[in-house]
Design a protein around this nucleic acid. Structure first.
Length: 449
DNA sequence: CTCTTTTTTACAATA
DNA sequence: TATTGTCCAAAAAGAG
């Protein structure tokens, strides 16, 4: 490929131009470049903005996941009342209890299929948040700053907020529990705002002095403390009051803060993650600088990567049990890689690191970059490029599969005919493989019908 | 160490 | 089917 290097260097001129622009940093110049970029209306469809936000150290991919705000307090109680009490205190249930809690959800998730889709934006979906009280409503933000309030059971109603287009990317989104028509947003356009789905003007809580250099990558709100945490593109973390008053601003990380989050049970405890390969815990009441960290978790890789082609994806915890989900591109270096496997959403048991099931649908072939469970933990919202997907348990499919299994069993199809085992495997693995092979057979049969 | 410049990447839009 | 360009990135390499 003689032209390859040439192409590359030419290609790279663009970022430099942008970079030079940035250091000169006049806002008028910036506006010009933004306006010049009308041509790039559809260029945001590449799946290059996947982010990881998981528990620390569970996955070791090119990019490493990072955040867990659940306090690790042991408990010895066995009965359900104690269990619920402990759960409400944020304590984690014991192993046996945890496993039994997971099972029904794993079953539901393995049967999940694309149930609804929405593609209201011309750019990728960058943020998804479930409505705190309405079970079928979500707020979705896009790379261009557009947002919708989407009820996936209704087609007649969709509130829309227009963004600024290129560079308006909504990096984080949080419903305002004091007024559920409004959402707190952080944006690449350098604004922390409270936006209103009823058409009122947004309230700007905080604004960057130079949004080409400092933009906002993460946001969380504690409504009990009345506080907002914000992470920016160069490592600053800012604590605001809910009204937007700056309480403090410190450079707590060397590089971009990719995520920040209040502990839901302890509203002064905040976790931050960064591409500087650390996750840090803070007592927001007493932060003076980097040295104020309560705890630092070091990783050998950045906690987040948005580079085109990296394996990262923005993963999320299940609300009820220790499962996480993460979209994945098939990777030869990944343990358990199967040739020609399709892109999937992996469901991972946090305690073992095992992939307990995969969520797939031929209707959704793209890379899933964002996942958010509903509050019940039985419905999953995902982003796939410009699309938002709702995954829902498909009982019809399950019923057919069971009938088929039964039929195959009666026809005398033995499990060991379904797969050619290569040497010895651990029982658990084998059963998973059999399951997969069985399902593939069933799927093929169903297709024939 | 910090700051700047070059290299990296696999997908999807385009031709 | 082959080619091109991403992307308000991030790692690696280079410079001081």
């Amino acid at each position: 490929m003689p032209g390859a290097t040439q192409r590359k260097t030419r290609k790279r001129m663009k970022p430099y131009e942008n970079g030079a622009d940035q250091s000169e940093s006049t806002s008028s110049k910036r506006k010009e470049t933004a306006e010049n970029d009308e041509r790039s209306k559809r260029k945001d469809t590449a799946e290059n903005d996947e982010r990881i936000k998981i528990c620390s150290g569970v996955l070791t991919r090119k990019t490493i996941p990072a955040i867990s705000v659940t306090p690790l307090i042991g408990n010895n109680s066995q009965n359900l009342v104690h269990h619920m009490h402990n759960t409400s205190l944020g304590r984690r249930p014991q192993n046996t209890m945890r496993k039994s809690l997971c099972q029904p959800f794993v079953r539901i998730l393995s049967n999940a299929k694309v149930y609804r889709t929405a593609s209201p934006f011309d750019r990728r979906v960058t943020a998804i948040e479930w409505h705190p009280t309405h079970p079928t409503v979500l707020a979705i933000g896009s790379k261009g700053g557009d947002m919708i309030l989407w009820d996936y059971e209704r087609t007649d109603k969709q509130e829309f907020i227009s963004g600024i287009g290129k560079g308006g990317s909504i990096t984080s989104l949080k419903f305002n529990v004091d007024n559920l028509n409004t959402v707190y947003t952080s944006s690449v356009s350098g604004k922390i705002s409270l936006q209103d789905f009823t058409g009122r003007q947004p309230k700007i809580l905080y604004e960057s002095s130079d949004w080409t250099r400092y933009w906002y990558c993460a946001l969380d709100v504690s409504f009990t403390a009345g506080l907002v945490t914000v992470g920016d593109s160069v490592g600053n973390t800012i604590l605001l009051s809910q009204e937007g008053k700056v309480l403090w601003k410190h450079k707590l990380h060397k590089q971009k803060v990719t995520h920040c989050e209040f502990n839901p049970q302890c509203d002064w405890l905040v976790a931050t993650s960064s591409v500087d390969k650390t996750v840090k815990l803070w007592d927001v009441r007493m932060v003076k600088g980097t040295e104020s960290a309560l705890h630092v978790l070091n990783h050998d890789k950045p906690v987040n990567s948005a580079f085109n082609g990296s394996f990262g994806a923005y993963a999320t915890w299940h609300p009820m049990c220790d499962l996480i989900v993460v979209g994945r591109y098939p990777d030869q270096n990944f343990p358990g890689y199967v040739a020609n496997e399709s892109r999937s959403i992996d469901v991972i048991d946090v305690n073992t690191g095992d992939i307990v099931c995969q969520i797939k649908d031929s209707k959704a072939p793209g890379l899933i970059s964002l996942n958010k469970f509903n509050h019940g933990g039985d419905v999953l919202a995902s982003s796939m490029g410009v699309n938002a997907l709702i995954w829902h348990e498909n009982l019809e499919i399950e019923r057919k599969q069971q009938a088929m299994m039964e039929e195959m069993r009666l026809n005398g199809v033995k499990p060991n005919e379904a797969t050619q085992s290569q040497g010895r495997r651990r029982p658990q693995q084998r059963s998973n493989r059999l399951d997969a092979a069985m399902k593939a057979k069933i799927a093929a049969k169903l297709k024939q019908q």
